[in-house]
Design a binder for these strands. Sequence first.
DNA 1: TTAAACAACTTGTAAATACAAGTTATAAAA
DNA 2: TTTTATAACTTGTATTTACAAGTTGTTTAA
Lengths: 235, 235
Amino acid sequence: MGSIPQYRQLYEILRKHIMNGVYGEGSLLPSENELCAAHNMTRPTVRHALDSLVKDGLILKKQGKGSIVKKPVRDIGILSIAGTASAVGVRYLKTDILQKPVIQKWEESFPFELSELEQEAGCVYMERLRFVEGAPVFYDINHLPNIHIPRITNRSFENKSLFDILRQTYQIEILGGEQKLKAIKPDAKIKKLLQLKSAQPVLYIERKLATNKEGFNIYSTIYFNSEKHAIFGRF
Amino acid sequence: MGSIPQYRQLYEILRKHIMNGVYGEGSLLPSENELCAAHNMTRPTVRHALDSLVKDGLILKKQGKGSIVKKPVRDIGILSIAGTASAVGVRYLKTDILQKPVIQKWEESFPFELSELEQEAGCVYMERLRFVEGAPVFYDINHLPNIHIPRITNRSFENKSLFDILRQTYQIEILGGEQKLKAIKPDAKIKKLLQLKSAQPVLYIERKLATNKEGFNIYSTIYFNSEKHAIFGRF
DNA sequence: TTAAACAACTTGTAAATACAAGTTATAAAA
DNA sequence: TTTTATAACTTGTATTTACAAGTTGTTTAA
């Protein structure tokens, strides 16, 4: 017997099966007693495995019924955009790179506290403006510490999300983060960039995203025109 | 013995003690065996309670060491408030009930889609205004379907969060949700309630919170004065 | 035909027990 | 004095057993 706990092994098996569609969305998992028999475990052990799946939001247990497969759509914090009436997919999002990634020093007034490592390494800076149906709605400024990401300044970001590149090229995954939101009156620069009518307020977001790389955080400042669209998020 | 499970009772006790500072941050909880003896339970039951605390992020268990109290600022989605400079604890939040819970019909223009069950049951409606350091910052309107929550209109909400009452009295837990955020120009009513200077924009949030009770969702509309504070969230 | 009762499932809660594995302070040996 | 071993803790994993409670289809009685 391996040193991996039994409940963990069952969890991995069931998780894989759910992801691969062996158990379709909305269908029932085998009952706890069936799982006991099939994997030669006792009920507490099986339940431990199922508890983990519940925690992941992969199943939903109902007393007297069974374990229902859920396969959730989880976003990372607030990332997607919804129209005020109906949802607008990310595919309708066109991106302009205002400032291609450059390496520079951290600004003195940088709103987040930096670790020593981040401070020393300097930062990679970029600005983007995003359009929905031809109109600018999203202006974001990103700072990454200059570690783990060699040659990022040479990369093209055309039609590719920053997060996709970080994940695919550098194996950097977002684990979580924190953000601060305010409604503000935009200054002249923002007003011009987002083509705002006067007196139209703007949603302002500061966020810090933690990754699987120790000490590698992504810092973003976002200005969002919420006249015709809203920031949408699941949690 | 009440019909509330033992592990749940212990969970509530420990949770309260952690929140009230009986167990300070970083300190150790009594060991599992001590809790068994103190509350006359067996270890599986005690561990079930501790598991819930781990899930809440209130403790951190270390094998061979014990259960370390964490007391995080981690709320459900966006609920906590941070000062623009430093964090402001929820304890500085005073709540005024503008409209005590009443049972009424759902409004025609209700922004969310309702299930048939929710539609039939009618809704419980309440309004609150929250203050930080004497100034109103938070106006929220809540709609709950009138199921699972008998006699809620008789309850006092003085110094108690709606979520605490739902959890403790009705065993209703928030599992997740979705929300939509915008920056808006407030109308006269909101302006007056939040004592806003003219031209001060407001953060507007619509949220739907899903719970462990099938078909029981909580719908909130929030107006937030982000002049001196920001909405803060972890994920 | 219809409604109530029941049986056979499902998950939920709980006890009693055992041993494995990580941590820490103490006692023994170098 | 310093190092090592040990004992006494801690949480982690797992079995076995029992009954409660919710769901569903079937059988029985009206």
